[in-house]
Design a protein around this nucleic acid. Structure first.
Length: 449
RNA sequence: GGGUAGGUGGCAGAGCGGCUAUGCACGGGACUGCAGAUCCCGACUAUUGGGGUUCGAAUCCCCACCUACCCUCCA
C-alpha cells in the first residue's frame, strides 16, 4: 500500500514495524464549539484508514488528542461567561457523541491535553536544557532558528515567512517565528503550576507530550487536516526531534483537504457552518460517510446538498440489498473473496476511496439485479457486505425497531391480494413515515430502513 | 509577495503517449395495482487557453489564465 507523504512529497510504501504494529496519531478538535462537516470529513477518512489497516492485519493503535486548553477556549469563556470545565466537558461530550453517530469507532484512546501537564513540563524542561527554549516575561518560547529543519514539512522558507508575517511582533521574543511552549497565567484564566509559575501549555507541545508518553519519540502515521501543516505539525517535528535527538518523529505524514460549503469556506461569520448534527437530521450517517468517501481525501472539496442526496440514495440501495440477503449465514467463498479484493484494491493506491465507492455501488446494483438469489448467493453477498461494513461503515444495519412489523407486512399483503389497495398503501405510507420502507418484488415483499 | 496541490462531461472521478472508463444525476421505454428496486435505450457528444515535441497528447515540455489551501485562529 502506498500513501502520499507530505514531508517528502512522494508516494511511500507503508511498512509496519515488528509484529505488524503501527501507531497512528490524528489531531483531534479543540473543544470550543460544535463539530461541523469539515470535522466529519477528516475523521471519517482517518476512521476508514484505520479500519483498512486493521483489515489488512496490521495491529494499529489509533490515538487522538483532545485540545481542552487553548486561546479559543478562553475566548469562549469570556464571551459566554461559562466556566472552563463547563465548556470543555460539554463540547467534548458532544464530539464523542457525533463520532459515535458517524460510526467513527476506530480510535483506541482519546488523550486530553490537560491530563498531560506533567509530561508537557518535562518536555519543556528538556528543551530549555538543550538550548531550544528560553523564558521571557509572558512565557517560554521555542527557538525556531536553532532547529534547522524548521519549514521542511510546509516547504516554507523562514526568511520569506518572516517577510509575510502579519502578527504583531513581541519585542521580547528573540525571533518573531518563535512560538510559545508555556503561557503564563493572566487574570481569570485556567492554569496549572509549573517551575516557571502558573500557566498553561502552548498548542503544539500538547501533542508531542501526548505522543511521546504513549508512543515514544517516534511513531508511524500522523494525520490531520491540511491547515495544520504550518505551524502546528512543523512545530511538533521541531519539538520532538529537538527533545529526543531522534528523527524522524513520524514516518508518514498524511493530510486531508478542506470542505467548503457552496464554494465558500465554512466559517461562522458567514453562517454557512453546517454542523454534523444538522446533517444527521436529513441524512443517514452512512450517507454522510459515502459522501465524504466519494471524494479524494487530499483534495479541497465542496459540500453541496446534491452530493448528500446522491449519497443518501446510494446508502439506501446498500441497505435494500443488505436486508434482502441478511438472515442467512455468510459464506466466504472464492467468489466472495475475489469480489472483496476487487472492491478494496484501489485503497492500496493512496486510499482511493472514490474508486471503491464506485466499485461498491456497481456490486450492489449487480446484486440487486440478480433475481432469485439462492441461499448460497445470499450468503456470499452478505459476506462481501460485511467486509464493506467493516472497512467503510456504510451499510445501514440498525436492527428493526419492532418485530411486529412482520405482522403488519402480512396484513398488507392480504389486503393486496384482495385488491384493497387503499389499505395497502395506507400501511406502506404509515411505515414510511416511521422510516421503514416496503419493497414489493416478484420474490415477495421486503422491508428496509 | 512567497509556498503547496490542482484544473477532464451537471457532480464525483479514472486514464500515466495511440483502443476517448466508470458511478451518480438527467431523458425515453419495459416491468409493477401504484411506489420502490431492476432492466433496455439515449443524451450529455468532456479533457482551462495558447504554443511546442511526436506519425499520434487528456497524457511529455513551455507560457498564460484559473481554483483551493498555507504563510502563526482553524479538521
Amino acid at each position: 500500500m502506498e500513501v502520499k507523504d507530505t514531508l517528502s512529497s512522494t508516494m511511500k510504501t507503508v511498512e509496519t514495524r515488528e509484529g505488524k504494529r503501527m501507531n497512528m496519531f490524528v489531531c483531534g478538535p479543540t473543544v470550543q464549539d460544535r463539530p461541523h462537516m469539515g470535522h466529519a470529513r477528516t475523521y471519517v477518512f482517518y476512521d476508514v484508514l484505520a479500519r483498512y489497516l486493521r483489515y489488512k492485519g496490521i495491529r494499529l493503535f489509533y490515538l487522538m488528542n483532545i485540545t481542552d486548553i487553548e486561546d479559543h477556549i478562553i475566548t469562549k469563556m469570556q464571551e459566554t461567561g461559562r466556566s472552563w470545565e463547563d465548556i470543555t466537558t460539554s463540547y467534548s461530550s458532544e464530539f464523542f457523541e457525533i463520532m459515535r453517530r458517524l460510526k467513527n469507532n476506530s480510535v483506541n484512546y482519546y488523550a486530553f491535553a490537560t491530563d498531560y501537564i506533567k509530561e508537557i513540563i518535562e518536555q519543556i524542561l528538556k528543551l530549555i536544557e538543550k538550548g531550544y527554549a528560553y523564558k521571557i516575561s509572558d512565557g517560554i518560547y521555542f527557538r525556531v532558528r536553532k532547529f534547522k529543519d524548521y519549514g521542511n514539512l510546509s516547504k516554507q522558507n523562514l526568511d520569506e515567512l518572516r517577510a509575510g508575517a502579519r502578527v504583531e511582533v513581541r519585542e521580547e521574543k528573540e525571533d518573531p517565528l518563535d512560538f510559545a511552549l508555556w503561557k503564563m497565567k493572566k487574570e481569570g484564566e485556567p492554569s496549572w503550576p509549573s517551575p516557571w509559575g502558573d500557566g498553561r501549555p502552548g498548542w503544539h507541545i500538547e501533542d508531542t507530550a501526548i505522543t511521546e508518553s504513549i508512543f515514544g519519540p517516534q511513531y508511524d502515521i500522523h494525520g490531520g487536516a491540511k491547515d495544520l501543516i504550518f505551524p502546528h505539525h512543523e512545530s511538533e517535528i521541531a519539538q520532538m526531534e529537538a527533545v529526543s535527538g531522534k528523527k524522524p518523529i513520524v514516518r508518514y505524514w498524511i493530510h486531508t483537504g478542506h470542505l467548503n460549503v457552496d464554494d465558500i469556506k465554512m466559517s461562522k461569520s458567514l453562517k454557512n457552518f453546517v454542523t454534523v448534527e444538522d446533517a444527521l437530521r436529513s441524512y443517514w450517517p452512512e450517507a454522510i460517510r459515502i459522501m465524504m468517501l466519494s471524494m479524494k481525501y487530499s483534495a479541497a472539496v465542496n459540500f453541496e446538498e446534491k452530493a448528500a442526496i446522491d449519497a443518501q440514495g446510494n446508502a439506501e440501495r446498500i441497505s435494500i440489498l443488505y436486508h434482502r440477503v441478511s438472515g442467512v449465514p455468510e459464506i466466504r467463498s472464492d467468489w466472495a473473496l475475489e469480489m472483496t479484493g476487487r472492491i478494496f484494491a484501489p485503497l492500496e493506491n493512496d486510499m482511493n476511496t472514490p474508486e471503491v465507492v464506485r466499485e461498491i455501488i456497481s456490486f450492489v446494483k449487480d446484486s440487486l439485479a440478480r433475481n432469485k438469489l439462492s441461499e448460497q448467493e445470499k450468503g456470499e453477498i452478505l459476506y462481501v457486505l460485511r467486509q464493506i461494513e467493516a472497512v467503510f461503515g456504510i451499510v445501514h444495519t440498525v436492527p428493526l425497531p419492532d418485530k411486529s412489523m412482520d405482522i403488519i407486512l402480512k396484513m398488507r399483503n392480504e389486503s393486496r391480494k384482495k385488491g384493497d389497495y387503499d389499505s395497502a398503501d395506507m400501511i406502506r405510507d404509515t411505515l414510511k413515515s416511521l422510516g421503514v420502507h416496503i419493497e414489493d418484488t416478484s420474490e415477495g415483499s421486503y422491508l428496509w430502513w
